[in-house]
Amino acid sequence: MKNVILTSESFFSNWTIQGVVNGFIAWLFGVTGPLLIVLNSAEIGGLSDSITTSWIFAIYIVGGFSTIGLSMYYKQPIAVAFTIPGAVLVGTTLVNHSFTDVLGAYVFTSLLLLVIAVTKSTSVFMSLIPLPIMMGMVSGVLLPFGLNIFMSVLELPLINGATLLVFLLLTLYKRIGAFIPPILGAIVIGFVLLCLEQPISFNSNSFEMTVPGIFLPTFNLSTISELTIPLLVTVIAIQNAQGIAILDSLGYKAPINALTTWSGIGSLVNSFFGAHSACIAGPMTGIIADKTSGIKQYRYKSAVFMGVLWILFGLFAGFVIEVIRGIPISLIQLLAGLALLMVLKNCLVASFASKFQMGALFTFMITLSDFTLLNIGSPFWGMVFGISLSFIFEKNDFRK
């Protein structure tokens, strides 16, 4: 009983304003840009509103409970969501394959993820990739978020410009920033100015709980062969790899095989609600794991807060989507970029500060290029070519 009380006291203490804010920013990022990709894929695939709603319900509900469970168990800030490039792949696949056949590919992918986790193949895969090369891939993924900071100001000079200015001033004047975290000040100014210029309106009738559907998969060899391998790559080598690299760079020991296991379990549950693969969310993990979220051992609470918001979003997806659609995407991009700023800096330092600099550079550039081959995106090919070129030009680094 005494241990239970201590655990309870430990959980409800040591929360920080900045940690909660980072959880909110990670949530806000996850329910805007990535959500629009899912909605676009559903439209391309000709899915009904009921199927699309169920898809959204699953990816956020399953992601929310997985985030809370993993973060509290391992005491690490682990953000679980869905594979963003996988959502793009699903849209193109639905054009030529039936919805239930695509569900069959989801199930097959989930089972393969579980096999990979049981055989501990993920750990072997991750151990073969030098950390600077992995961080070069993560830097290439995150750099566009940094660039969006300045592009967003061009789109909405007054709102986004004032938001950026407040962030910089609070960062510069550390005494004020100690009481008002820079990103919190930026959020407040951004949304106040937004409401003054273009008030957000919504239909109160949409405030009702989401009712998901249950769908049974069918199995088509053609669909499975087209979708399974790309989905596996996006989960393990792109999304999970980003999250693991970020956690390791901040001094955590990411539970690699456990993350693969729960990606498989989450993906399997998702598939029966019409949703695609679950995975670790790299950029969102970067936001909640940042040093500004507080003392290292308590940063997982930022993930727990984000997970709760994830679940609420899934339960009231229709209402929240309507509100979110009223927020300019450029403001969301600005806030996400500001939240990831220090993460990006640390990733760049880890990429080029020591060994494997040539491999890290090519990985970084190829990841930025949006190069696609065999329906597999540039982060994967960045690592493939980066490791290959590093092995040719930097053999001494491999020997050491």
Results as ranks from 00 to 15, higher is better:
residue 281 A to H: 09
residue 156 L to S: 01
residue 134 M to F: 13
residue 215 F to V: 15
residue 388 S to A: 13
residue 136 G to I: 03
residue 211 V to L: 07
residue 304 V to S: 03
residue 142 L to C: 09
residue 383 M to W: 12
residue 186 A to T: 04
residue 305 F to S: 05
residue 11 F to Q: 02
residue 66 S to H: 00
residue 392 I to V: 15
residue 54 S to R: 02
residue 249 S to P: 01
residue 156 L to R: 00
residue 377 G to K: 00
residue 320 V to T: 04
residue 165 L to M: 04
residue 187 I to Q: 01
residue 312 L to T: 08
residue 396 N to C: 05
residue 301 K to C: 05
residue 355 K to R: 02
residue 312 L to V: 14
residue 125 F to I: 11
residue 378 S to L: 07
residue 67 T to N: 15
residue 167 F to H: 12
residue 83 T to L: 03
residue 325 R to S: 14
residue 3 N to W: 13
residue 154 L to E: 15
residue 35 L to N: 00
residue 242 Q to M: 07
residue 285 T to Y: 15
residue 256 I to D: 03
residue 331 L to C: 04
residue 331 L to V: 05
residue 377 G to C: 00
residue 332 I to D: 00
residue 304 V to R: 01
residue 302 S to N: 11
residue 118 V to R: 00
residue 73 Y to K: 06
residue 7 T to C: 03
residue 212 P to A: 11
residue 394 E to D: 11
residue 390 S to R: 04
residue 2 K to T: 12
residue 380 F to S: 01
residue 143 L to H: 11
residue 381 W to I: 09
residue 220 N to H: 09
residue 112 L to D: 09
residue 56 I to M: 06
residue 344 L to P: 06
residue 361 L to G: 13
residue 305 F to M: 06
residue 221 L to Q: 06
residue 29 F to D: 05
residue 32 T to F: 02
